[in-house]
Write a protein that binds this DNA or RNA. Structure first.
Lengths: 221, 221, 221, 221
DNA sequence: CATGAATGAGGGTTCATTCAT
DNA sequence: GATGAATGAACCCTCATTCAT
């Protein structure tokens, strides 16, 4: 189901961080991701992070001025990656010019599988972003910036192919974005966070989600 | 848009707590809701709660053995209220017997408006539940209990009117529940938490959401 | 082994307190004895005392100005009772005039059995006295007052019958008192506090203790 | 009175602790000994210990997980030292083989002076042990282990020289141990804790104690 | 006389952060 | 660069005591 090209999109979020990091620093980042994800930022202690990373407490603060700096240095790159498949040029090229996606379904399918694998691979990071975006304005702003700069433009273009002209005139693109994202994110959160132990038939669920979005959007008026 | 009967459903969550509480205790609960909501449970300090409640810090612990006890005593009643409109008997009576809802739209409309007002009225509480359900098993378990005991049965009965027999056979209730809830919850979270300052046309958004769900579900196969 | 007259000496320490006490106050005293004895004065909390006594916390302070007052009101009467059998007049009468004790052994035997039963009956109280005498000057002073006013004079008279004139000249009464008390108290502490679960043959141990003291004193020079 | 060899036995209890300790940690231990001794474990506050040690309160908990850990780390080594002169092999060698002690008196004299100096040197520590053994099972167990493993065997062998065969058959070694220890400990406690300000003639008191024990034991039957 | 809510000082402990080594 | 001892503020919580009812 996952096509080769998709894999190219899946960039290890850590890479960006780790390739320029000392080994100890990489350990710190990994440990921090674990602990932040398990206990939340406020509930995590630098001493536990240090312990899990196998470094001295002081070492953390040699690389990151504060605990919050450590969080931000982890979260911000992830957010960038989150919007990767929607980078305007790439998105436009693939969807509109290459005619690769024969229909809406195929487009949605690619999109969902792509984010599905991304979330699956970076679950702890996703949890951190989801939790901490409500408490840290830097994260919130970064997210909404990407939403308006990347996702919204990309979607604006995409809907030209999926919706009638009448719909495009009447229904705000934000609403379409909201409904679409709700369905996808709702699936991913249910799948990976609310009921990760349920015996999911992922392909089937994704197909239903595609149908739901496609028909849901088509019926808008 | 909101009919009188709906308002009866909106029970002040605090009442249940506060009516048997001393005045100071009520102040503590209110302050705790504020602070928990703003900073999260782990980020909230009992000293700040006490300060905002105009109470000595020790007073908190006279009424709640631990900080966590305070959280739980706040959250659990809210969760019960969350599922109130789905209490099986009431739900069934209204939807299936009274024929009050002429069509799917009207049913969804009632439901969404109802939860819309509930969330609007109890926003800080909603934030707390949403945030803390990932860290406290008591909350998680309570939520999933209500999900399976109240929501799922209610939905199981409701779909008989909305979906064809064929759909009912093929598509799992859980999936239908997930897609529907995603759309509603997605709207509420976007509306009240992600972009509360945006100039929303709530009625319009709700209508789109209704259409989206109705058409989305109808198209499943 | 315990003669009837001994029992007269065994006055219930609580009586002195309780007969003039309200029922609630009596409960408080009993609970306090328990808790002080188990956890020590500093380790005991008035809230636990109140809980065990089945009264409100405030009730304690209605009868005793402070926690320490409660301790003192318990401990001082006990100390008085501790020296009861050595009240000069009674002691002198019994030992010296009535000629009831044919020999040293019988005298020691009476004494030891008497204190043995007293300690056995008032174990928690004994523990409190033993522990707290080091931390509270009131207790310490009260004890040493009784030691010098009651015990020492009584012993001074007694040794005239047990020791030779030469011994009486040479060996200080204090030393004789110390050696005797050490043996008796050593037995009682070992018996009731250090190894209360050991399978003691009390009569036998007391006989050995009597022999030890008698022969030990006789050999002094 | 104290022979050179005895001094070798007097090991500074703190050495064991302090030689691997940071300077601040050593200060903490010394301050803790002071405060525990003066106010008892429960009555001592870590803040006072920190203040007296000239250290931040947090520093205590860097080295000792809890206040109780600090207590235990102080008390357990002391208990080991308490039984040092009774280590079976050493004891046996000196008493039984080397014939160094010509008679019972000389043996007791050595023993008492040895423990006399140990207690004098480590008075605060002794107070702590004496007070806290009743409240902390770790201490109690450690003490009784040393009693049965070290003291009892040592005494079992020693009495062969001091008592007749008949006595050895009849009188339990525990009783002999109890009577002997009572006399010595009774002396030390009276001397150092109950009446430390009295004008003691220590040598004379020790001689009386030796006579008392020797004659007291000899007369047992 | 008895209550128990309320207090605020202080309890032990954890924390993010600093700095000499 | 890395350490870990040291810090002191802040943490959650317990305490003895007060007082309106």
């Amino acid at each position: 189901m996952l096509k080769p090209r998709d894999r190219d999109l899946l960039v290890d979020v850590l890479e960006m961080n780790e390739e320029k990091l000392t080994p100890k620093q990489a350990k710190i980042v990994q440990a921090a991701i674990e602990v932040f994800s398990e206990k939340g930022f406020a509930g995590a202690s630098t001493s536990e992070i240090a312990k899990r990373a196998g470094v001295a407490e002081g070492t953390i603060f040699r690389h990151y001025k504060t605990k919050k700096d450590l969080l931000i240095s982890i979260v911000l790159p992830v957010i960038s990656k989150l919007a990767l498949p929607f980078l305007a040029d790439q998105f436009v090229k693939e969807v509109l010019e290459e005619e690769e996606y024969e229909d809406v379904d195929q487009f949605l399918r690619e999109l969902i599988y792509n984010r599905y694998h991304f979330v699956k691979k970076n679950l702890p990071l996703m949890k951190i972003v989801l939790q901490e975006m409500f408490y840290h304005s830097e994260i919130k702003e970064n997210l909404s910036e990407i939403l308006t700069d990347k996702l919204l433009p990309a979607f604006s273009q995409a809907i030209q192919r999926f919706l009638t002209e009448e719909q495009q005139e009447k229904v705000p693109v934000e609403t379409i974005l909201r409904l679409s994202i709700s369905s996808v994110v709702g699936f991913l959160i249910t799948r990976f966070m609310i009921a990760p132990d349920f015996d999911w038939d992922d392909d089937q669920e994704i197909e239903y989600t595609i149908q739901f979005i496609r028909n849901g959007l088509r019926g808008l008026s």
